[in-house]
């Protein structure tokens, strides 16, 4: 068996070894010529190419679209209008009252997205933290529960939206439960408050496993001896949490917070399938607005959609910079 395994290994790795030997002199020559910086550039180049083609060029194209008008799809056929689309989006008498804005649906979507981020991120961080704290304890079936909480992360957002739609619709599972309890069934997705709460709750359910995992890793990195020392001193659990767990989990919490913020601003798939933006426009979020204007409307307006997405990208860039800063300070703190 050993011999068989050995030869199978040789067979698999042989082409790689041959390739490595073939390119090795070339790489050495490259390193002599360009130095260590040149080697770094060489290995980064493939990734940069992919990033450029699929991220940078689309961003530049999107910026170009945002400065054009008309309904034609091809950029070359679209007239240049400068900042007209941005002016249209930003024209408003009172930003707190979307109906006074020229593009009232954009501002309604922006307000909804802001509220969604506020509620969803708060809930997400709280629930993920509690779940991580529980899963960090020596409980029975810990591995099973870790898998259970992570499982929704693996589901397609469309599947998540459909599952919860079936649960929350008029003839859904929740109403079956409600009726069995002798209560009046509700049309949960038709009420502004419950529909919005459903969007927040479902999104939290779908993604909390990921954030729980990050926090769990942070919890497990906290040295056990700190807790043992606190226990010997008779420190109450609440104080242990406040003085040991929270400070040492700070960097992970910051990352979770910013990632959840970015994800919250981008909310689309599951909310779109779940509520379609309704009732009325109470769960219309920015990404759905952009999708509707640019793609789904009977008369599309790609320029307006591109301008809206550039504004949204601006918010995401700010959040990403915050995340980078937090990551750097957290890395610095650990050193």
């Amino acid at each position: 068996m050993t011999s068989l395994g050995h030869w199978a290994g040789v067979l698999v790795t042989a082409p790689l070894v041959l390739l490595a030997r073939a390119v090795d002199p070339l790489l050495r020559a490259w390193q002599r010529w360009t130095g260590i910086g040149g080697m770094a550039a060489f290995f980064l180049l493939p990734n940069l190419l992919i990033f450029g083609v699929f991220v940078l060029i689309p961003i530049v194209l999107n910026l170009a679209y945002s400065m054009t008008g008309g309904t034609e799809i091809l950029l070359a056929q679209r007239p240049y209008v400068g900042g007209e689309q941005y002016a249209r989006l930003l024209e408003c008498q009172d930003y707190s009252r979307p109906l006074t804005c020229r593009e009232d649906q954009f501002w309604t979507a922006a307000r909804n997205t802001g509220l969604f981020v506020l509620f969803q991120v708060s809930l997400m961080v709280a629930v993920s933290l509690v779940t991580a704290l529980i899963l960090n304890r020596e409980i029975k079936g810990r591995g099973f529960f870790r898998a259970v909480f992570f499982f929704p992360v693996l589901l397609s957002p469309v599947v998540v939206g459909l599952i919860w739609r079936w649960i929350l619709q008029r003839e859904g599972l929740l109403n079956l439960l409600v009726v069995n309890l002798g209560l009046e069934p509700q049309v949960w997705l038709n009420d502004r408050v419950t529909a919005f709460a459903a969007a927040v709750g479902v999104s939290t359910w779908a993604h909390m496993g990921f954030y729980t995992l990050i926090l769990l890793a942070g919890l497990q990195a906290i040295p056990r001896d700190l807790y043992e020392a606190a226990e010997m001193d008779g420190t109450p659990p609440a104080r242990v949490f406040r003085r040991i767990t929270l400070p040492l989990l700070g960097p992970n919490l910051a990352v979770v917070l910013v990632l959840a913020l970015i994800r919250g601003v981008q909310i689309f798939d599951e909310a779109y399938v779940l509520t379609g933006g309704g009732p009325g426009t109470s769960t219309l979020f920015l990404t759905q607005y952009i999708y509707e204007v640019g793609f789904a409307s009977l008369l599309r307006n790609p320029g307006l959609a591109a301008a809206a997405s550039m504004l949204m990208a601006g918010v995401l860039v700010v959040l990403t910079l915050v995340q980078l800063r937090l990551s750097r300070s957290s890395a610095g703190g650990q050193r």
């Binding site: 649906q105 619709q169 008029r170 049309v187 997705l189 038709n190 529909a195 509520t275 379609g276 933006g277 309704g278 009732p279 009325g280 426009t281 769960t283 219309l284 759905q288 607005y289 509707e292 789904a296 409307s297 009977l298």
Partner: peptide, 14 residues
């Protein structure tokens, strides 16, 4: 039936 008209935003067809 409110599910058809009320429960969606924009021009979504239902």
């Amino acid at each position: 039936l409110p599910e058809v008209w009320v429960s969606a935003a924009g021009t979504t067809y239902r």
